[in-house]
Design a protein around this nucleic acid. Structure first.
Lengths: 133, 133
DNA sequence: TCTTGACCCTCCCGTCACGGGAACCTTCAT
DNA sequence: ATGAAGGTTCCCGTGACGGGAGGGTCAAGA
């Protein structure tokens, strides 16, 4: 299989696949013309990477997860710890975003949104926080 | 005021303040020795930027918001539209993260986390999704 | 056979919002 | 005079790719 086929099959951009080879996550063979040749194992690794990335794991996490996957003597606690750590980061991000959302939606709700210049959003940003409500 | 004072006062790293000058968000004067000199207006602009960034606005959004702030003939609808757009992006991110969180926490909960190698997290990533539950 | 269009390749720069650190100058207190 | 603590510029690195130039390769139709 060439890179385009793999790309279509997995929904991963060819650029991404080349990048994963660059950083050593996959090592596809090359055919005589220089094209990358992907065998089932390569496709499987890429699918694994795609799913791990979709869950928000960093590339380095993915590297670790792949190593654990191929390590017969792994402990599931190592995987679980990594995943729990990642879960914690996701929760932190959600929390930050929810804080922003709360503040900003309050401001948006108090803004008339007409053609007059008065705007509580700008007032708040400028520090003239006329402590809303 | 020198950059260090402003940094301390606003809780913004000096690097960040220099960066904001680089990209034209502020234009502090220079004293004879080449040091940046910040007057009240500069500090105010930086505080504005700090708050806008804390709400997750991009630098380009901040540029627009500052321009609107200094534009007497602005319409509050312009500000509100920008903020609503940003709110939408925040909501999208929260949604994505919540999807990841849901999937990942289910996987984490079904993983024994002991010293045996069997791990539903890795099984799922590898595509052997033994449809959990 | 020639061409055309769809592949593929490498290489390099751009993203976003800074952070780290080198190499250097200035100011202030001792 | 000296040393520490400020300030300056400049350049590279981050994460995970995307865009695009410039070029080679392949399969199908005229």
């Amino acid at each position: 299989m060439n890179i385009g086929d793999v790309s279509t099959r997995l929904g991963l951009p060819a650029k991404t696949i080349r990048y994963y080879e660059d950083i050593g996550l996959i090592k596809p063979l090359r055919s005589a013309n220089g094209y990358r040749t992907f065998v089932a194992a390569d496709v499987h690794r890429l699918a694994f990477l795609g799913r791990a990335r979709a869950l928000g794991f960093t590339i380095e996490d993915c590297r670790t997860l792949m190593a654990l996957y191929h390590d017969e003597s792994r402990a599931s606690s190592d995987v679980k710890d990594l995943a729990k750590d990642h879960l914690g980061k996701i929760e932190a991000k959600i929390h930050d975003l929810q804080m922003m959302h709360e503040t900003l939606s309050e401001l948006v709700n108090t803004c008339a949104g007409d053609n007059r210049p008065d705007c509580p959003i700008l007032s708040d940003l400028s520090g003239l926080s006329s402590t809303l409500s």
